[in-house]
Every structure is written in C-alpha cells, then in structure tokens.
Design a protein around this nucleic acid. Structure first.
Lengths: 199, 199
DNA sequence: CCGAAAATGGACCGGCAAGTCCAGAAGAAT
DNA sequence: ATTCTTCTGGACTTGCCGGTCCATTTTCGG
C-alpha cells in the first residue's frame, strides 16, 4: 500500500527517470542518475520498483505513452471536418517538431521492446487507441460524405497511422519533419481521392 | 593493411555478430558470444575493431543496411508500370513478413542511433537512396502519364517511404503486416488519385 | 499516543563484460 | 631463409552499476 507521500515519491521518480532518458538515452541512464535528479536513495527505487530497472523503465514507458494521445487532444477526438483534420495535422507536426530527435517512447520501446511482454502491450495499447480515434474520424467524414464511403475506415486508419509513425521515425534520424508532412499529405490525398484502391 | 586471411576473419566477425544480434538483440550480445560463434579470440576482435564494440556495431549496421535495398531488387530499380509497382509491393511485404519481429537494422539503429554520428549517416544514406529510387519510379510513371504530373515526385516518395517505415515499425511490435499493407495501399491510392493535395 | 506498516539513508557486495597486454604463430615479401 | 608485418590465444585488470541489507525515521489508523 502507498501513502500519499509514497505516491508523490514514486511519481517523482518516474518523471525524473523520463526526463533523464529524454536527455541522455536509455542506455546512458544509471539508477544513480535518477537518484540524484529525484533526490532519492537506492532503497527507495527498489522499494517502489522491486523488480528494478526493468520495472522502472516500463513505468516510464506507460507514463510517456499516456502523454502521446493527450498531446493530440482535443483535435484527435474531433475529426469531423477537413478543417479539423488539418488542425490535427498541424498539431502532430508541431508536437514532433518540438520534440525533435528525442522521442522517449521510441527510445524506451527500442530498448526493452521485444523482450518484455509488458512493453509490448504498452505500445500495442497506444497504437490501438490511436488507430481507433483515426478510424472514428474517418467514419464521421464518410457519414457526412466528405470521404469516400467505399474505403475501409479501419484499414485506412492503419495506413495513416503507419505514415505518421514512419514520419516520426525518419524525423528521429534526420531531424527534419518533411517525411512526416509528406506522409500526411499523401495519406490525405488517398483519403480524399477517388476510391480506386483495393479497399 | 589486411591480408586475405584477415579480411575473411573480419567478415566472419561482422556476419556472426549480425546473426547474434538478430537472434538475441543488441543489448544481450556480449563480445564473448561473438567470439564463440565466430571462433575468434578477444585480441582478434580488438585487432579488427580497435575502437571496440561500438565500431563493431557500426560495421554490422552498414552490413545490414546494404542488404535492405538489395533485397528489393530488381523490382525497386524498375518501377515503370503499375504492375511493376505491385510486384515491388509484394516483395516488400513478403520480405518483411519473413523477417518478422527481428529487424536488425532497426535494432542496431535504435541502440546507437543518436549518439554515433556514423550510425546516423548509415541510416541517412540508406533512406536517401531508397527515396531516390522511389522518386525515380514516380517520375517514370508521370512521364508515361500513369501518375498525375502535378505531384512533386520527391515529396511523394518521401511520404511513401514514411509509410513503409511506419508499417515496418508497427510490424515489429505487432507481428502483423496489416499496417504495412494498408500504408502501401493508401499511398498508392494517393499516387493514383486526382491531384487535390497540396503538391 | 502507540504500534504496525511504509518510507528512507546509505554502506556494501558481487558479477559481469569491456578493454589491455604480451607472447608467440602464421603469412607476405624480397 | 630471414625479416617484418599481421594475426591469434588467452590470461588479467578494472570499473562500473544493479541489486541486497539493515538500521532508522516517518506516516497513519484507531
């Protein structure tokens, strides 16, 4: 059981670890660094995360994953017109432009990605919710006749999501947002266009 | 200077390290494992890679990067008809389906990605060449009137590339190719479609 | 208050794996 | 053949850092 003080400390640790990772990368982060930044001792770390570093990283991943969709609100939840889609687009580009080369989630993921089933599910959950929000928007647009009714909303959302992910990935290594923007534009063109695809 | 024998040994080390990484991930790979697999001693490793593990990983990254585009040939170099584009699409999906969750390049990249400038340039080079090949194909299609002449070939290629990258990324965490396929379909629709985008 | 549970401090351990070193074998070159 | 370079074996060092432990303090419910 956690007391109020305990919760504060735990939260401080997670946030501090997240910052540390953002700044220096997962591999470079020692527990000692987290301790220094959060003014905690080793026994506290292992008190709140008995399974050690792995568990802490997972908590950080969850913490970061939660932020991703929040940062896209309220746009993401209201994709009901082309203007709204454009606003969402701008927000996404802006958010990742600011973030630049430091994508904490990708970092943490890339680190414990495959091995930990927990990490897997964090990402899966995030992507699923993200895709669902996009699919909702697409269905909305179809209902109002602004996107072709023939296309499979879920599949289109999957493709759009992939474009965003790839754009961000390329941003991480190039530092430029042009791939992300191009991917969004190309996807939008597909969403607008005549339904000649294999939908 | 390297003798013939030296080159063989060096190549054996790189290939062995690549296999080891594919199977167990970067973090899990000890120099000792590479030594065992390639029947080499520690002094050999440091003889061929004086800067140690970092340098070896970089060599592995280069090795893997070279394979990526080769695996897409001859399709990638001959995107001159929609049928050819479809063949390329199939090849890409097939290649990554086989590869499944073990993308050695992404792994190595995710590991030393930001810190080493060398790794940065390996990925940059790969992506640049990849995008250039796609852009060439698009220009070909425009010349023969099979893709709208109004779109910016390089930008469209950037978007398509992002879609592929994102699709692969999602494949890595989900194990399924549906995002990759959806991204390709959506991008193709965009490439076919009426030029209503911001090209 | 008081006792139990939670929170904290910080010294200590232990293992592991990267990197060093030197001695000696194999190969090239003339 | 000899000499110089490259190649190889493997023991040794070293530092780092995750994890353990116990003693002490703080919190909290009743």
């Amino acid at each position: 059981m956690l007391t109020r003080k305990g919760e504060q400390t735990r939260a401080r640790i997670v946030a501090g670890a997240a910052d540390e990772i953002r700044e220096r990368g997962v591999d470079e982060v020692r527990l000692e660094d987290v301790m220094a930044r959060t003014r905690t001792s080793k026994s506290q770390l292992f008190h709140y995360f008995p399974d050690g570093k792995e568990q802490l990283l997972l908590a950080v991943a969850r913490h970061e994953a939660d932020r991703v969709l929040d940062d896209q609100q309220p746009m993401l939840g209201d994709l009901t017109s082309w203007a709204a889609w454009e606003r969402w687009r701008e927000r996404v580009v802006e958010r990742y432009r600011e973030q630049g080369t430091d994508c904490p989630l990708t970092i943490v993921m890339g680190h414990l990605g495959r091995r930990s089933a927990g990490a897997q599910s964090v990402v899966d959950g995030l992507m699923t919710r993200w895709q669902a929000a996009l699919a909702d928007g697409i269905r909305h647009m179809q209902a109002s006749g602004e996107m072709p009714g023939e296309l499979d909303a879920d599949r289109a959302a999957a493709g759009l999501l992939a474009g965003v992910q790839g754009g961000v990935l390329l941003l991480l290594s190039s530092g430029r947002t042009e791939h992300l923007e191009a991917a969004l534009d190309l996807a939008f063109t597909g969403l607008r266009g005549s339904a000649t695809g294999r939908w």
